[in-house]
Design a protein around this nucleic acid. Sequence first.
DNA 1: AACGCGACCTGCGAGC
DNA 2: TGCTCGCAGGTCGCGT
Length: 323
Amino acid sequence: MPELPEVEVVRRGLVNWVRGRTITGVDVVDPRSVRRHTLGPEDFAGNLEGAIVLDVARRGKFLWMPLQEDGVSRGSTGSGDSGVPGVALMAHLGMSGQLLMQDSSVPDEKHLKVRLRLSPEGAMPEQLRFVDQRIFGGLFVTTLVPTDDGGPGGIAEDPVPVIAEEASHIARDPLDPHFSFDTFYRRLRKRKTGLKRALLDQGLVSGIGNIYADEALWRAKLHFARPTDTLRRSEAERLLASARDVMADALAAGGTSFDSLYVNVNGASGYFERSLNAYGREGEECRRCAAAGIVSIMRREQFMNRSSYTCPVCQPRPRNGRW
DNA sequence: AACGCGACCTGCGAGC
DNA sequence: TGCTCGCAGGTCGCGT
């Protein structure tokens, strides 16, 4: 469910609660949530117990916490005194994952999957809980590998030149100061596919999911099926600026949520839903057309086995590769 | 190499 | 009331 703004809201919330704290205990309540940890739940827990959380980093929709294990100086720099690669606790929220800071006194959530106990206790919540209804997300321990382009990026300050291995194939996101439009546009033009499929390809540009893809296309007045190899540079610039604007606005509003499924680390929902212009607006008037005195009804169509929302007037379907 | 589809999961509301 | 169907914010691996 969460896209870049929602994941970044979680990262920012998390970092103040976990940085510098020690993981003293791990409960894997449902092993399916650590299935990407191939050595199993016991190995997962064994890698975390005793480790100190150094930071919370993000690339696209992937989050990870570099760790200092057993007093060995390794983690955020990628190689410590021992020369051993750094390790990190990786998290992906999938469609329904939540990372919640909770006191021990709070009853277990219905879909609680993994519990981490943190010290020191006292003023701060004692537990970091991973809650996930659909189990598309998960946690696993991975290694940090060098990158040649300035580290995880995201909107995190002070990037370090390492990245969690499973996030190394993920491109930078449009809000990342190191994002390269030229690289994006060159790769986009080589694709033989529809524009929305390209926007959702995390290896081309990251952080954009089904909601913000539709919002960015609407703002840029482009259709989701527009062939990528016909896109003019000015159109691609308009599209990227739209994606950047809509995600920055959503981030400032605390993210988008339709229900309690998406919440920040304190369990609160964001307020961006009311600002959506395309997603979920089937049967309603296009706001831009209405402002121009035109009545146009937003439509919903299937594309890539998911819903896409467009205005039939200002986002016409391409014909013969053009529009 | 890159595209496109199915698989991975649970829960909710609509319709019968 | 209870069943089935369609739908939901994502990613990965496989066949082509």
